[in-house]
Amino acid sequence: MTIPFFDGHNDFLLRLSRKPEARRDLWLGNTGQGHLDLSRMKQAGFAGGLFAIFVPPIPSGNVAAFETGMPDPPYAKPLPPLMDHATAQPVALAMAGLLHWMERSAAQDFALCRSSVEIRAAMDTGRIAAVMHLEGAEAIGPDLDALHLFHDMGLRSLGPVWSRPTIFGHGVPMAFPGSPDTGPGLTEAGKDLVRLCNELGILIDLSHLNEQGFDDVARLSTAPLVATHSNAHAICPSTRNLTDRQLHMIRERGGMVGLNFATFFLHPDGTGGTDLGWDVMLRHLDHLITHLGEDHVGLGSDFDGCTVPDLIGDVTGVPRLLGAMAAHGYGAELVGKLAMDNWLACLDRCLR
């Protein structure tokens, strides 16, 4: 029996945006390319997920290195420069349009959802429940007016930064080994952004924020603390992973962490090899469960935005991961929580 699961993060929209001439085949065909398409999602039990709008760095000099993965550790990649909203907004709007197109082109199988009620209703009718997410808020200008526009289009989850500075705050650099405590926290505009997200019922994603920015959100926000795709820093000391202190804060606030499948954020030695076994992912899950509790851990694959273990390969490998959890000793109830139930309960708490 296939266990349905909810995925906290994917970059499928970025892949579609890069090949506009092939978008129908990539979504509705059987190309086998990348990690996701509608057919494989249905086959795997992908019941819903957060679909990221991500504006990639403009290739210039060593900024293009972000497109080709991380080097062997130790490494500390330079951050791309700040991107203004005039540059980012057209790209983000086009990706939002792609998500709406996905719904229209597969209305019997796929629904763009704006509330937890809509998410559950879509799943009850066998449709994949998609939630629009903005990874890095560059497309939102300093007056924040565009946030209302994106909210009307369906935006319900937002990360103030990706791993580059914005007018709202600072992301962690891609570095190993390293601490997430890498610089200043939210700007005044970032604090206003957090307040408006709370007002509108938009989930605030902490995954790429540095530690001081994380703490600022914790002080300002009235919502649960959520990191949609991050791992345990105690096991893999990447700047992108969460310290035990941060995990405890997320637990205290009724939040959530989605396990990131990216090999660079799994390997204890910071390497990106794809031949790692289930034991590494299970060590992260064990640690997250220990520090967060069984009700605050789920999946946040980063599909189509990272390199994943060979044992997973693409979305059709998620059932194998769930099977490895069961073989590891997780009972059926816990596997169900990690697969989907915890995400649905968290979204109940976060969305209006």
Rank of each mutant, 00 (worst) to 15 (best):
G183V: 09
L292C: 04
F176V: 03
F12T: 01
G329W: 09
A189E: 11
G323S: 15
M132E: 14
G201I: 13
L158P: 09
D145F: 03
V335K: 02
D215T: 01
G305V: 01
A339T: 09
V308C: 06
M249F: 03
F66L: 12
P142W: 01
L13R: 01
H148N: 12
L16G: 06
T271L: 02
L209E: 10
A326S: 15
S221T: 14
L134E: 07
S163N: 15
E211P: 00
G8M: 07
R104W: 07
L93A: 12
V217F: 05
S221P: 02
W101I: 08
P224S: 09
V172M: 06
I119C: 02
H9D: 02
V161W: 00
M249I: 05
V217K: 01
E294R: 14
R195D: 13
G300Q: 00
S39N: 13
L16K: 10
I312A: 11
I235R: 06
K42A: 10
L247Q: 08
V297R: 07
F110K: 02
T307Y: 05
T187N: 03
H9C: 07
L158V: 11
F150G: 05
H233M: 04
A130H: 03
V91M: 12
L209P: 03
R120T: 11
A146D: 10
Y75D: 06
L347F: 15
M123V: 07
G258N: 03
F6S: 05
S116L: 00
H208M: 04
M102K: 00
P180E: 08
G317V: 09
T228M: 10
E21V: 04
S230K: 05
D192S: 10
M174S: 15
H296W: 02
G258M: 03
P237S: 14
G300A: 05
L347V: 09
T187M: 05
S163I: 05
L36D: 01
P80A: 07
S116W: 01
T239N: 07
A339E: 07
L209W: 03
T222C: 11
H287I: 03
L26M: 12
L220T: 06
D37R: 03
V297G: 06
Q33P: 00
S238N: 14
N62A: 08
G29E: 14
T87I: 10
